[in-house]
Design a protein around this nucleic acid. Structure first.
Length: 509
RNA sequence: GCUCCUAUAGUGUAGUCCGGUUAAGCAUUUUGGCUUCUCAAGCCAAAGACUCGGGUUCAAAUCCCGAUGGGAGCACCA
C-alpha cells in the first residue's frame, strides 16, 4: 500500500489514530510520581552520622525534599544511628549544619534509635512466627554458605530455642557470637535475600544512648520498620541500595506492615573529587588536604568555602534528573549555575597578581570613584591615587612604548617606558575602543592577600600535587571592609570568596 | 565467578513505559557575532548524539534477542 493509500485508509476507517498524542509537557523538575496523592506524600532523608556531609548527601536530601514539596507533603530527617561504633555527635551536628546551609526544611526530625523498642518488638514477632532465627555460626561460615546457597543448621532450630537465644543475646552471647537472621531464601539469585542479618550485638557506646542497648538492628531492619512506621510513602535512595528493595518489602510483608514505594537514583560524584572517607581521611592525615572544609573537597563545607551557593547546588542537582545511569559530572556544570547566582551580587574589585609597577607622571586628580558593579546599583568606592600603581605581570608584558592602554575606571595612559617598571602619561578624554584595558591597584594602599586556587584533587588515580595553587596578590583596601564569606569578582580574574582579611579563595571564572 | 542496574552530542540530561507529526529538545562546553571602560554577566547564531549486531513492523532512540562498555551487590556498614 502506498503512503497515500495508507493515509486515506486511516482517515476513512481509523480517524482516532490521527488524534495527536497528548503533548509531552516540558517538565521543570523531577518526573511525576505515578502513585502519589497531593498532600499525602511523605519522604525522608536518612543520613548516618558517620562523617561530614557532601554533595552526595545533598542529592539525596534535595530529591526527597523536592518530592515532598511538589506534592505538598511532609519531609522527615531521620538520623540513621544504629551502629554505635561509627556514629558521633560531631557528625550529627555537621550534617545538621550542612542541611541548614542548603536551605532544606524538615517537618519532623528524629533518630532511628528513638524506636529501639519497636525494633525489638518486631524482631520478637518475626522470631515467634518463625520468620527469623538466631544464628550462631561463624562469620566466615555464614559468608561461605551464602555464596554456596546453603542453609545452616541454626535455621532448623525451633522457635522456642530461637527465642531463648534471642534473650541470651542481651547478655550471654558476646559480639559476633549470635545474630538474628531473616528467613529469606538461601537459593535466591539476589544475594541480599539469602537470610540477611536483622540484629547483631554491638557493645560500643552509642553517642546519644550510651550503653542502654546491646542488640542493634541492621540497616535493612531499621529502614524497613522506620519507613513504614513513619508513614513514608516514597523512599528515594542511591542506586547501591537497589538490591535491598526486595528485602525491605519482604520484611514488611512478614510483619504485615505498610510498604513505601521505593525509588533509586545514581550516585553523584565529581570527576577528580572523591567523596569517600576512605580516600579523604588519609589525605587529611598526611596533610595533603587541610580538613573536611578544604575547598578542593566536594563536602558541603568545602563547597561553601569555595564560594558555591546552596541555590546553585539545588539547581545543579535538579538538572541531573532522577536517572540510574552513572553520573560523573564535571565541576564546570555546577560552576555555570553558581556564576548566575553570584554575578548579580558580587562586588567588582581590582586585584593584580605578579605585581609590576606603573608610574603615571601627570595625573590631574588625587582620587576617583569607581562603581562597585557594572549594571546593578551597589554603590561606589573612592580610591586615593598618586600616580604609583601596581598592575598585573601578565599585563605588564603586553604594554609597549608608544601605545595607549586604559586603566579601568580611570583613564588612558600613553606608555613611555615598558618593562618591569613601566611609565606613562595620562591622556585626557582618551578613546576607549580597541585598547588594552587593565585593572590596577595604588601602591601606597595596596593590600596584600593570599589567593588560593583549588584545582582537581586527583588526576586519574594519582593525587594532584599541584591541586592547590597559592598566589600573593594585591587588592584594593576596600577588601578589608567586606564581610568574611562575601563573594567578589576580581575584574578580569574571576569570582572569589573572601575567606579572611588576608586570604581569598578562587571560586571560578 | 554469580546476580542486578545502566548505555542519547565533549559533558549532564529530555524523549523510551503507550513505536509514527522531533531526520531527537534543554543545559553546559566550544566557536563566531552584538553589547559592554572586565577575559564576567546579558543577547543572537553555529557546531555537535540515539554503543554495536540481529529480529519484529509499512515504520524502532523507543519493542524483542544477543554482544560490548560502565556501575553496584555478594558485610554481624549504611
Amino acid at each position: 500500500m502506498s503512503l497515500e493509500d495508507q493515509r486515506k485508509e486511516i482517515e476513512e476507517n481509523f480517524p482516532e489514530v490521527l488524534v495527536p498524542k497528548e503533548k509531552i509537557e516540558e517538565r521543570d523538575g523531577l518526573p511525576e510520581l505515578k502513585d502519589a496523592v497531593h498532600g499525602k506524600v511523605i519522604t525522608r532523608f536518612p543520613p548516618e552520622p558517620n562523617g561530614y556531609p557532601h554533595i552526595g548527601h545533598a542529592k539525596a536530601a534535595i530529591i526527597n525534599s523536592e518530592y515532598a514539596r511538589m506534592y505538598g507533603g511532609k519531609f522527615i530527617l531521620r538520623m540513621d544511628d544504629t551502629n554505635p561504633e561509627a556514629e558521633r555527635m560531631e557528625y550529627h551536628a555537621a550534617i545538621k549544619v550542612g542541611l541548614e546551609w542548603l536551605g532544606i526544611k524538615f517537618d519532623t526530625v528524629k533518630n532511628t534509635s528513638d524506636d529501639m523498642e519497636i525494633f525489638y518488638q518486631k524482631g520478637i514477632e518475626l522470631i515467634n512466627s518463625g520468620k527469623a532465627y538466631v544464628c550462631t555460626c561463624k562469620r566466615d561460615d555464614i559468608s561461605k554458605n551464602r555464596r554456596e546457597r546453603k542453609a545452616c543448621k541454626c535455621s532448623m532450630e525451633s522457635i522456642d530455642k530461637n527465642f531463648k537465644n534471642w534473650e541470651k543475646m542481651d547478655e550471654k552471647f558476646k559480639p559476633g557470637e549470635a545474630i538474628v537472621r531473616f528467613r529469606g531464601n538461601m537459593k535466591a539469585d539476589n544475594a541480599v535475600m539469602r537470610d540477611p542479618v536483622l540484629f547483631r550485638i554491638i557493645e560500643g557506646k552509642h553517642y546519644t544512648l550510651g550503653e542502654k542497648y546491646r542488640i542493634w538492628p541492621s540497616y535493612d531492619m531499621a529502614v524497613a520498620i522506620e519507613d513504614s512506621v513513619d508513614g513514608v510513602t516514597h523512599a528515594f535512595r542511591s542506586k547501591e541500595f537497589e538490591l535491598r528493595e526486595e528485602l525491605i518489602d519482604a520484611i514488611l510483608d512478614a510483619l504485615n506492615m505498610r510498604k513505601p514505594a521505593q525509588g533509586f537514583f545514581s550516585r553523584l560524584e565529581f570527576k577528580g573529587m572523591p567523596i569517600s572517607k576512605r580516600i579523604i581521611k588519609p589525605l587529611i592525615e598526611e596533610g595533603k588536604v587541610s580538613w573536611y572544609d578544604d575547598p578542593r573537597l566536594p563536602t558541603l563545607e568545602g563547597l561553601r568555602r569555595r564560594g558555591i551557593k546552596p541555590e546553585a547546588i539545588r539547581k545543579f542537582i535538579m538538572s541531573l534528573g532522577l536517572t540510574k545511569a552513572n553520573t560523573l559530572a564535571p565541576f564546570d556544570s555546577l560552576e555555570a549555575f553558581n556564576r548566575k547566582f553570584v554575578d548579580a551580587s558580587s562586588i567588582r574589585l581590582f586585584m593584580v597578581s605578579n605585581a609590576k609597577k606603573l608610574t603615571v607622571k601627570n595625573l590631574p586628580i588625587s582620587s576617583i570613584e569607581i562603581p562597585n558593579h557594572p549594571v546593578n546599583d551597589m554603590g561606589k568606592r573612592k580610591i586615593e591615587i598618586d600616580g604609583n600603581f601596581y598592575i598585573s605581570g601578565d599585563d605588564a608584558k603586553n604594554i609597549k612604548v608608544g601605545t595607549q592602554i586604559r586603566l579601568l575606571g580611570l583613564g588612558n595612559i600613553s606608555i613611555t617606558k615598558e618593562g618591569n617598571e613601566s611609565e606613562g602619561e595620562f591622556i585626557e578624554n582618551g578613546n576607549t575602543a580597541d585598547i588594552l584595558k587593565i585593572q590596577w591597584v595604588p601602591q601606597t594602599t595596596a593590600h596584600k592577600i593570599k589567593m588560593v586556587i583549588p584545582k582537581i584533587l586527583f588526576i586519574g588515580d594519582e593525587f594532584n600535587e599541584e591541586s592547590l595553587e597559592e598566589l600573593d596578590v594585591y587588592t584594593e583596601p576596600h577588601y578589608l571592609q567586606l564581610k568574611e564569606g562575601e563573594e567578589i569578582q576580581f575584574v578580569r580574574f574571576g569570582y572569589c570568596r573572601k575567606d579572611s582579611q588576608n586570604q581569598a579563595i578562587f571560586t571560578h571564572k
